[in-house]
Amino acid sequence: MTPPPLHRVIYVSRSRIGGTEARLRAEIDAILAVARPRNAAENITGALLFTRTGFAQALEGPLAAVQATFERIQRDPRHGDVLVLASEPAGQRLFAGWAMADAGLVAGTHPLLSAASPAAAPVLTLLRDLAREAEHLPVV
């Protein structure tokens, strides 16, 4: 049986988590702790990057699972001003093995993410590079 076609979404959003860097880190850990088992179960892979002011995330998997995950993320009050950079069929997984790679905290505001409408491709490359750098081992 052929697996369902892959879909990938890349978005950026503004963080609504206030307080210290430690608080931000704790929230991100909480987000990942919830997201990873669920993503693994739903065959979703991807990476999450955060700065003091915002998030960038890539989600890839079967369309229905990506839609459901994206919808869940939209209901999260910890961010807002969501901007979808790309939502398209994907030939292959770029984050295979990562139920949600922690691309980590980028100091300050990353120029790629603070642009009025960032381009999808460089954000995706950034996510991928940071994910590889930050997590030496795939997370299952």
Partner: peptide, 16 residues
């Protein structure tokens, strides 16, 4: 307005 005004992905296409 915030929650309902976030993007939707019907059929994978982003809709604002």
């Amino acid at each position: 307005m915030d929650t309902l005004g976030r993007p939707y992905l019907p059929d994978g296409q982003p809709v604002s």
